[in-house]
């Protein structure tokens, strides 16, 4: 048994990988005390089987002296498992987003992460869904019903939110606003993708990969097929477990 844990700022993902390669996982909210949450999930397992990644990885390391790797490396491992031929990874999580370019051997060649703000992350989508009165789970579908008639010009979450409010007040179609919000996330991601350089196959991971509109809009803009692993939000945790297996 190998155990990978991804301590994100919004959720904690744990992935169990059996000797036979069977994968099971658990996702919980980070809550007020992420460390306690994490320890609750994994304390019955010996630390030497555990590899941690994510925002809180060092916190866990201090407590368990388990091994840690970065999200970048973890994603490379997790993605290669499903798509050995992957060369570009687009990961959009709760609090950050990144684009990773892999070389032919599947090693990390270059990567970029978003700046300090929430633009281009899951958090941004969440805030916008809330202010439009949509559930996060339906937000993407709603956006696809818009035709792309409006554009949101502001990249900053705070300004974008007031832009959305003023659009609402002017009576704009909420489906169109939803579409515009998604487009703005995609634009932000695309600028990173172009800086890193894109090569096929392109794999989309992180919780936001479950949002159908983001995936569709990315695919259209890049003119390339976008692959999404099953349960894209656990890619990092799975990558940790796979890494551990490779080490042992």
């Amino acid at each position: 048994m190998y155990l990978g844990i991804d301590l994100g700022s919004r959720t904690i993902k744990v992935c169990f990988l059996s000797e036979k390669g069977e994968i099971s996982f658990e996702v919980v909210e980070s809550g007020y005390d992420p460390l306690k949450q994490a320890l609750g999930l994994i304390q019955k397992y010996p630390a030497k089987l555990i590899v941690a990644t994510g925002y809180g990885r060092h916190l866990l390391k201090e407590h368990l002296s388990c091994e840690v790797i970065t999200e970048i490396k973890a994603h490379a491992f997790g993605v290669r498992h499903f798509f050995p031929e992957a060369r570009t990874i687009i990961d959009i999580g709760g609090q950050d987003s990144k684009v990773i370019s892999l070389d032919k051997e599947g090693r990390v060649a270059r990567f970029l992460m978003n700046e300090k703000c929430a633009a281009g992350t899951g958090r941004f989508l969440e805030i916008m869904a809330m202010s439009l009165g949509y559930k996060v789970s339906e937000f993407g579908e709603k956006a696809l019903q818009g035709r792309g008639e409006i554009k949101i010009s502001s990249m900053c979450t705070v300004f974008a939110e007031s832009e959305v409010i003023s659009l609402k007040n002017r009576g704009a179609n909420p489906l169109e606003i939803a579409r515009a919000v998604h487009q703005s996330v995609v634009d932000k991601i695309l600028s990173m993708v172009h800086r890193v350089g894109v090569e096929e196959k392109v794999v989309f991971t992180g919780g936001v990969a479950k949002n159908v509109a983001i995936a569709r809009l990315l695919q259209e803009a890049l003119g390339l097929e976008i692959l999404i692993p099953p349960h894209p939000e656990i890619t990092g945790a799975l990558g940790c477990a796979l890494y551990k297996r490779e080490q042992t």
Binding site: I69, T70, E71, I72, K73, F111
Partner: peptide, 10 residues
């Protein structure tokens, strides 16, 4: 921290 660690890993 993440970016620098990832760079060293790379």
């Amino acid at each position: 921290q993440t970016r620098i660690e990832a760079f060293l890993e790379q």
